[in-house]
């Protein structure tokens, strides 16, 4: 005779919420969209709400089915005088739990087609967007802008490494490829991800509608709309970002410190950029990260890139500086090879 251990099962099932035992701070406010807020209003919110819809559907199914298991274990546990009910099935029940889930799944699939098409199939016209080429290599992100002549593959191209500039509220079209192995261009805050495949041009678009800044008082990241930022004093330069290790788990403490011997810094305030005393700065323009989401070799874990989200003023300032400094133009051997093999990609829309 086997012993009965329903309590054991109960305990075990409860452990599915075992993560409640985790340090509370790790879970405070942790849910989809909270930890990494969406900054892409064009379609990021739709992705987040689709996630929520699915989340609630599966939560109901989860509670229903797991609840049934626990309930049945208790109600129909082996005990004296209790006999199993002989049955081979029930057509009505079978039809119900085939047709209803099928309807939900088909609805889910059809419901999302238009979102998918909006994100992936339809590219915004060139007049409404900035075009940038993204070339991934082990282990860096190269970005190429057409430069003053508006054409790619010419000597006035502007190239940056690990730094992508986008204009707030304006669509950016990215033409993505890779030099050596497959990488994946992932901007968590913008809800986009696209593999960068050698020999292939992948096109995506996104938009970032809030400007990430670093609050110097609270030493943390904050996000401003284009209207909000007008009232803030945001330093564009003059500060250094530091990351100090806290313990052996790799947790870091981040902070911005003024560069030594720096008296003034370019500060954005009320839509103008002016040199002001560095003490006046309340915020620093802070980039968001680009991650590589495809295994690309031993440096995969450190293939971090940055997106600087600019206001129209700071974007123009950066572009003018880049043109003046001839940033990396005409210097890259490997883009020459790229341009030779794939000239058609430089004129792709």
């Amino acid at each position: 005779m086997q012993k009965r251990h329903p309590w054991l099962v109960g305990l075990g099932l409860l452990s599915m919420v075992g993560w409640l035992l985790l340090p509370a701070k790790a879970f405070a406010g942790l849910s989809f969209g909270k930890l990494v807020p969406n900054l892409n209003f064009a379609f990021g919110n739709t992705i987040d709400s689709l996630y929520s819809i699915i989340f609630w559907i599966v939560t109901i199914l989860f509670i229903g089915t797991e609840g049934a298991i626990v309930l049945f274990i208790i109600l129909y546990r082996k005990r004296d005088g209790h006999k199993a009910h002989y049955s081979h099935g029930n057509k009505f029940a079978e039809l119900t739990w085939t047709l209803i889930p099928m309807a939900i799944l088909v609805w889910l699939a059809i419901f999302q087609q238009s979102t998918w098409a909006f994100i992936r199939a339809d590219m915004p016209p060139a007049s409404e967007s900035n075009l940038v080429q993204v070339f991934a290599e082990q282990f860096a992100w190269n970005f190429r802008y057409a430069g003053p002549d508006g054409k790619f593959g010419t000597p006035d191209d502007i190239m940056t490494i690990n730094q992508l500039h986008v204009q707030v509220g304006k669509k950016t079209v990215a033409h993505i490829s890779a030099k050596d192995v497959i990488h994946s261009f992932f901007i968590p805050y913008a809800r986009i991800k696209q593999d960068a495949v050698p020999g292939m041009l992948n096109r995506i678009w996104f938009e970032i509608d809030k400007i990430p800044c670093w609050d110097l008082k609270a030493q943390q990241m904050v996000f401003f709309s284009p209207d909000e930022i007008k009232e803030k004093k945001v330093a564009l330069d003059g500060f250094a970002f530091k990351a100090d290790n806290v313990d052996i788990t790799g947790v870091k403490k981040y902070h911005y410190d003024p560069l030594p011997d720096t008296k003034t810094a370019p500060i954005l305030y009320e839509g103008k950029i002016e040199d002001r005393p560095i003490e006046e700065a309340e915020y620093v323009q802070h980039p968001i990260e680009i991650a590589c989401a495809q295994l690309c070799g031993l440096g995969h874990y450190r293939m971090v890139g940055y997106v600087v989200v600019d206001t129209p003023e700071t974007y123009d300032r950066w572009m003018q500086q880049a043109i003046q400094n001839k940033l990396r133009s005409g210097e890259s051997k490997w883009t020459d090879i790229w341009d030779k093999y794939y000239p058609q990609y430089n004129t792709a829309e």
Partner: peptide
Amino acid sequence: NWLGTLHRGSIHL
């Protein structure tokens, strides 16, 4: 269907 099997069974743990 597995849930249906458990339902009204005599469950030996």
